[in-house]
Amino acid sequence: MVVMRRRHGDLADDEYVVVHCHPHGRVLAAPVLALFVLAGVLGVLLAALPSGARPVGTWVLVGLFAVTAVVLVLVPVLRWASTSYTVTSRRIMVRAGLLHRAGVNVALNRVAEISYRRSVLDRVFGSGTIVVDTQGPAPLQLHCVPDLAGVQRMLGELVYAVGDGGQRV
């Protein structure tokens, strides 16, 4: 998961990306399962539809399926795709949002402590939540981070290097 590359635009000249990721792909399991269930229910309902209600009833069922699929499948997939966690040589950046984009930047020199939380399911997939305690009012939480151990280790090394005057990295 470690990526050492330079992204143009929002980075300083001597800053580089160390880790860039989206939440773990397992968060897409529920929308995919919902899509299969919706398709099965639609097939059963279309097969059970009386022939007298065929043209209009078919369109109504397909329309309800489309609206439900957008809410239960498309919105969560777009939310996953629009959420990203980036750790650079200087800061942690979190970007999220579909229509209203929001972002948080935390300088590594403001990080006081890094901890994590993992459920049983998180341990199976190697993911988890990283909690970055800063000098601010509330800790920064990166939910469902893939390769939790690797990202946490890299983040710890970067915070240590920044606290050491930038001698290591």
Results as ranks from 00 to 15, higher is better:
26 R>F: 11
134 T>D: 03
85 Y>S: 00
162 V>P: 00
66 A>Y: 10
136 G>I: 01
61 L>S: 13
3 V>Q: 12
152 Q>M: 14
51 S>V: 15
163 G>Q: 14
53 A>V: 11
126 G>S: 03
73 V>R: 05
153 R>E: 15
151 V>L: 12
143 H>E: 11
23 P>H: 08
112 A>H: 13
128 G>D: 02
146 P>F: 11
150 G>E: 13
76 P>H: 09
128 G>N: 01
68 T>A: 15
156 G>W: 04
156 G>N: 09
94 V>F: 02
57 G>Q: 05
102 A>R: 15
1 M>T: 13
69 A>L: 10
15 E>S: 07
145 V>S: 05
116 Y>P: 00
94 V>A: 09
6 R>N: 09
2 V>W: 03
28 L>F: 06
97 G>N: 08
81 A>P: 01
5 R>E: 15
82 S>L: 15
165 G>P: 08
27 V>R: 11
39 A>F: 08
114 I>C: 05
151 V>W: 09
48 A>T: 10
9 G>K: 06
96 A>R: 15
143 H>S: 06
168 R>G: 02
67 V>H: 06
156 G>F: 05
56 V>S: 12
144 C>L: 12
34 A>N: 11
16 Y>F: 14
37 V>I: 15
40 G>P: 07
65 F>S: 08
103 G>M: 04
56 V>K: 06
111 V>P: 00
63 G>L: 14
81 A>V: 07
140 L>S: 07
117 R>I: 05
160 Y>C: 00
38 L>M: 10
11 L>E: 09
49 L>P: 02
76 P>V: 06
127 S>I: 01
119 S>H: 06
133 D>T: 12
82 S>H: 11
72 L>W: 04
17 V>C: 07
76 P>E: 05
156 G>P: 01
82 S>E: 13
79 R>G: 07
75 V>G: 00
96 A>Q: 13
22 H>N: 14
151 V>N: 06
19 V>E: 06
125 F>W: 13
152 Q>W: 02
115 S>G: 15
61 L>E: 08
103 G>A: 09
163 G>Y: 01
46 L>Q: 05
42 L>E: 09
152 Q>R: 15
50 P>Q: 11
31 P>L: 04
152 Q>I: 05
121 L>F: 14
42 L>Q: 07
52 G>K: 11
99 L>P: 00
60 V>C: 11
116 Y>H: 15
98 L>K: 02
109 N>T: 12
98 L>P: 06
